[in-house]
Amino acid sequence: MYWSVWFSRNRLVHEGINPVIDEFVSFIETYIQEQVALGQVYTSPNVSYESSWQAPCRSVVKFNFDAAFDPSSRSATTGVIGQNSLGLIVATCSFPHRSVADAFVAKAYACRQAVLYAKELSFSRVIVEGDSSSVIKKLNSDISDRSIICPIVHYIKFLSRDFSSVSFCFARRGANNTTHILTQEFRNHPSPCYWLEDASATVMAASELDRRRLAQPQVL
C-alpha cells in the first residue's frame, strides 16, 4: 500500500495536485476489496497458481495487461508492461479509452493493446498474461460466441498470426500487480504514454519488487 502514498506525493510535487483525503481512503478501500477477491477466480488449464509475477523463458517476452474502468464516465485506461526473462522492463504503455461498455470490454481492450504493442516492437515470441480469466478463456478457445468482446477476440487472434510463438495465460491479481499499479496511476491521463526499457518511478519500484521475489519460493 505504500506505493499509493508515494503516488499521491508525486502528484503533489510534480503536478501541484493536493490529495483529497476522502478519495485517497476510497482508493485504498477499493484496492483492498480487489485483493480480497483474488481467490474468486475461474480455473482453467492456463491458470498460473503463483501469487507473484513469474519470469518467462529466455528469448520470450511476457506482456502483462490490465485495465481501470470508470463506470460513471464509461471510460477506461489500459496498461501493458513487457518484461524479459530477467524481469527487466523492456516496454510499457498506457492508453485511454472512451465509450467503453463495461470492465469486461476494458480488459479485452487491454489484451488487444498488449498484442499490438508486442507486434509493433517486433517481438516474435511472447506470452500475453492478465487477470481476466474470461478474456483468456475465450482467446484459448476455438469456439466463437456472441459475447460483447467477440470482435475484439477475433482481432487479437488475427494479430497473433504474426508471432512465431504466442501464449495467452491467466494469472492471479498478485502476479499482475505492477500492471494494475500502472493503470491506476494513469487512469486520468488524457493521452497515450509509451516507454522503452523504462516506466514511471512508481511502476519501476513495483517491478523491482517482482524481480526480488523471483528467487524466493512461492507460498501456494
Rank of each mutant, 00 (worst) to 15 (best):
N64D: 13
D66N: 14
A67W: 06
A67S: 13
A68D: 07
A68S: 15
F69M: 06
F69T: 08
D70K: 10
D70R: 14
P71N: 10
S73Q: 14
S73R: 14
R74T: 00
S75P: 00
S75K: 15
S75C: 14
T78L: 01
I81N: 00
G82Y: 08
Q83D: 01
N84G: 01
N84P: 06
S85H: 15
S85M: 10
L86G: 12
G87A: 05
L88F: 00
L88V: 01
I89W: 07
V90F: 04
A91V: 06
T92Q: 04
T92M: 00
C93Y: 05
C93M: 14
S94R: 01
F95C: 12
F95M: 14
F95T: 14
P96N: 06
H97F: 15
H97Y: 15
H97E: 06
V100G: 07
V100Y: 00
A101G: 06
A101F: 13
D102H: 00
A103R: 01
A103M: 01
F104S: 02
V105L: 05
A106C: 06
A106D: 06
K107W: 09
A108H: 02
A108L: 05
Y109S: 09
A110P: 11
C111A: 12
C111E: 04
Q113L: 13
Q113Y: 03
V115P: 02
V115L: 03
V115K: 00
L116M: 05
Y117D: 01
A118N: 05
A118Y: 01
E120L: 14
E120G: 10
L121G: 02
L121A: 01
S122I: 09
S122W: 09
S122C: 13
S122G: 01
F123C: 03
S124N: 07
S124Q: 12
S124M: 10
I127T: 02
I127E: 15
I127K: 05
V128R: 01
E129I: 07
G130F: 10
S132P: 12
S132W: 08
S132N: 09
S133Q: 12
S133A: 15
V135M: 04
V135L: 07
I136E: 02
K137N: 09
K137I: 09
K138M: 09
L139V: 08
N140L: 02
N140F: 03
N140P: 05
S141A: 06
S141K: 06
D142F: 12
D142L: 13
D142E: 14
S144R: 13
S144C: 11
D145I: 07
D145M: 09
S147F: 11
S147W: 06
I148C: 12
I149G: 06
I149T: 15
C150V: 13
C150K: 14
C150F: 12
C150I: 10
P151T: 07
